[in-house]
Design a protein around this nucleic acid. Structure first.
Lengths: 140, 140
DNA sequence: CACAAATCATTCGTATACAAATAATTTGTA
DNA sequence: TACAAATTATTTGTATACGAATGATTTGTG
């Protein structure tokens, strides 16, 4: 079997292609593709713990720490101590972080439409369903 | 739209899940998931240039350099100068590298079967076709 | 209350990944 | 042949990503 038929490789390149399409557009707003996912969660609900962000995004705590460092440094989020539990930092969007929601969501929609153009609704639905089952639900 | 419906996120988590399943199995053989892809190409044809590996795998040259460093250090591949063009290193499998082919391909098949278990042949065919079109063929 | 266990964030080490810059060499062209 | 342009590999800098270890704190249990 050639590498081009290997599921692992195909998934890696599919993700890469989507990232690469979004990267230059998001870059103008000062964020990366992965940071965009983290912000999505915060736009839905502000003031989460770091570990909650990690669980939702299925990202290791050490990675979250680094991402938050950079987002904080760029003035997009801020860490505030939890008054009831000093182990915890609560993560809040700054004004600048809140303002990114509209433009970023527009960009992600553009990228998704671009990539899915040419496939039928049924095909797209199955595609997303399979990725959800494999990536988010299997074995957990 | 929730992050769990975002194509970019789904692709990222699908790739992550496949990597995570393969990782502990490949780790026993002393290689990583990404290195496995590079080896796949070499098992098909030995003695390629670094840049040819990068083109086939859609990976940046700088990343290839680092991967080859580690594979060489672990005795899995070796760089040999091209007698006709001193800019070029030709990449060859060592005996150890050649012996990995059987066990690694078995592992990758296990992972793929594991993840695709429960889906029909038609579903799998469409899934792979869409990932091929998006990840390997669109816009190139 | 005391202390083991759990929780949360961070640090460290390793491995991708890409952009940009650099170095060495070869190719194309006047 | 001389020299600009292209090619190849590498280095540097930034951003994920994870495992393991650490430190601070809180929780659970006797």
């Amino acid at each position: 079997m050639k590498i081009e038929d290997c599921l692992n490789f195909l998934a890696s390149k599919t993700y890469q292609r989507l990232s690469q399409l979004a990267k230059p557009k998001l870059s103008k707003l000062g964020i990366t593709t992965t940071q965009c996912a983290l912000l999505h969660v915060l736009w839905e609900q502000d003031g989460l713990k770091g570990i909650e962000l990690g669980e939702r995004l299925r990202i290791d705590g050490a990675t979250i720490t680094g991402m938050l460092d950079r987002l904080e440094q760029n003035g997009i989020i801020e860490r505030r101590p939890d008054s009831r539990d000093r182990r915890i930092n609560l993560i809040f969007l700054t004004e600048q972080g809140k303002e990114l929601e509209g433009p970023v969501k527009l960009i992600m929609k553009e990228v998704e439409d671009d990539v899915l153009n040419g496939f039928s609704e049924q095909e797209v639905a199955l595609f997303k369903k399979m990725m959800t089952l494999i990536g988010l639900e299997e074995g957990k």
